Simulated assay, not measured.
Amino acid sequence: MIERFAPPGTILHMLIETITPPDLDWQDEALCAQTGGDFFFPEPGSSVREAKRICGLCPIRSACLEFALDNDERFGVWGGLSEKERLEIRRTSR
């Protein structure tokens, strides 16, 4: 947990903002953590077929996709979906 305080002498001095970092333990079980990021963050115009194949075998695919959607990840393949596919989900869920 990270606590932030406004500088003394400011009006906001009494404001305390607490930030709790997300739980990322699920990433230790991810197949992508064992294969490297090259497949999952390809050059523009490159195929994401191999990344999607690996994601399809991954036991924590749904947690990965949920994290990407919750955190508005805009690059790479997360949970078996490309940037465009995740954008479409965000658009339709509004």
Rank of each mutant, 00 (worst) to 15 (best):
P59N: 08
L15W: 06
G45W: 10
I60P: 01
I89V: 12
R91G: 02
I60Q: 01
E73F: 03
C58W: 02
I54R: 02
L81A: 07
T20C: 12
A51D: 04
R86N: 02
I11N: 09
A68M: 03
L15G: 03
F67I: 03
L24I: 13
G56S: 04
I89N: 07
E88P: 08
R91T: 13
S46A: 15
F39K: 01
H13M: 04
R86H: 03
D25R: 13
W26H: 05
P42M: 03
I2Q: 14
M14F: 09
C58T: 09
C55N: 01
E83G: 08
T10F: 05
I54V: 11
L65D: 01
G79A: 00
L15S: 04
F40L: 01
K84Q: 13
E88K: 13
A30T: 04
V48R: 00
L87W: 13
D28H: 13
G9R: 12
C64H: 01
P7S: 15
L81H: 04
R49N: 14
F41W: 06
G45Y: 09
R49T: 13
G9I: 10
R49G: 10
T18N: 13
E43P: 04
P42Y: 01
N71R: 07
I16G: 06
P22G: 12
F41D: 05
P42W: 00
G37I: 06
Q27F: 11
E17S: 12
L87C: 09
F75G: 03
G45T: 11
A68V: 05
N71G: 00
G56C: 08
F5G: 05
G76T: 01
L69H: 08
G76D: 00
T35L: 10
R90I: 04
L65A: 07
P7M: 11
E17H: 14
W26F: 14
G80D: 05
A33Y: 11
V48Q: 04
K84A: 11
I89Y: 00
P22N: 12
L57G: 12
F5K: 14
A6K: 04
D23F: 01
C55L: 05
G45Q: 08
G45F: 11
F75K: 05
A30Y: 00
I54M: 10
P44C: 08
K52N: 02
E43W: 02
I2Y: 13
A33Q: 14
G80H: 02
G76M: 05
G9Q: 09
D23R: 09
A33I: 02
D23S: 14
P44T: 01
P42T: 00
P8N: 11
R49E: 15
R61H: 05
S93N: 09
T10I: 01
C55V: 05
Q27R: 15
A63C: 03
W26G: 02
E3F: 03
S93W: 00
Q27K: 15
G80P: 07
F67R: 04
N71L: 02
L87D: 15
G56Q: 06
P7K: 15
L15D: 05
W26A: 03
F67G: 08
P22H: 12
P8I: 01
R90A: 09
E88M: 15
I19T: 11
E73A: 03
L24A: 10
R90P: 06
L12E: 11
A68Q: 04
E43V: 07
P7L: 11
D23N: 15
E29C: 02
D38Q: 09
T35I: 10
S46W: 09
L31T: 07
M14P: 06
P42H: 06
P8A: 15
